[in-house]
């Protein structure tokens, strides 16, 4: 995963930990479709997959203070989605046991799960459509950072002129895309400092 996207996630995680619902919405927009795609590799239909992932996201909210960093949150999403999917499958298996309509449990060992995670992560990073932060996420970032630090404080900390800060802020989130490609370190820091 792009290292700078991970930075953004880490900043938003701090706000999630403070119980800010907008930060939760950010993570929902960011990871819900990915987790549903992942779950749908195990469960027979998308409606069920979506339900499973919604439950997982509620657990994320309940445990929001326990995540050390964004990668830990992502690991939790994968592990919980996989566990919940397996539970659903075993329900199905019990229901249809007499028909032997479903494959044996042996098929569901850990190895394929790890591979499925690798596939999901690599494809997500290869897909331009997925790598571009969803519009909703960008809007949320904008909302969350509007009440950040004063430009003079940021300028002082970054050692750059106030006019630079102001113009950067004005250019604002338009530049986010560039930033996420790792081309604009100063702006990344600007966002970090806007947050602090």
């Amino acid at each position: 995963m792009d290292v700078n996207l991970l930075h953004i996630d880490n900043i938003l995680l701090q706000r999630l930990k403070r119980g800010e619902e907008l930060a939760f919405d950010y993570f929902f927009h960011r990871y819900f479709p990915l987790m549903v795609t992942f779950a749908s590799r195990f469960v027979p239909n998308n409606v069920l997959a979506e339900e499973i992932v919604q439950d997982v996201f509620y657990k994320v909210w309940e445990r929001r203070s326990s995540f050390a960093n964004a990668q830990a949150l992502k690991a939790f999403l994968y592990i919980s989605t996989k566990n919940a999917s397996y539970n659903e499958i075993s329900k199905f298996q019990n229901r249809y046991k007499h028909q032997e309509a479903y494959a044996s449990e042996n098929e569901l060992t850990e190895q394929p799960v790890l591979q499925e995670i690798i596939r999901t992560e690599v494809y997500a990073s290869l897909s331009v459509a997925i790598q571009t932060l969803p519009g909703q996420c960008r809007k949320i970032i904008q909302l969350l950072f509007e009440e950040g630090k004063k430009p003079i404080e940021i300028a002082d900390e970054l050692g750059i002129s106030i006019s630079t800060v102001n113009s950067q802020k004005a250019r604002g989130l338009m530049l986010l895309k560039q930033l996420l490609k790792g081309k604009d370190l100063d702006l990344l820091l600007l966002i970090i400092f806007l947050y602090f």
């Binding site: 929902f28 795609t37 749908s40 509620y58 290869l126 897909s127």
Partner: peptide
């Protein structure tokens, strides 16, 4: 080998993009 050739990426992308996250969040 599958990943290097990005064999199933279109199918993956289609599945991802078919999900209506905003509606799901309202539902949530």
């Amino acid at each position: 080998e599958e990943l290097l050739q990005a064999k199933n990426i279109q199918e993956f992308e289609a599945s991802y993009l078919s999900i209506n996250t905003s509606r799901a969040l309202v539902d949530f």
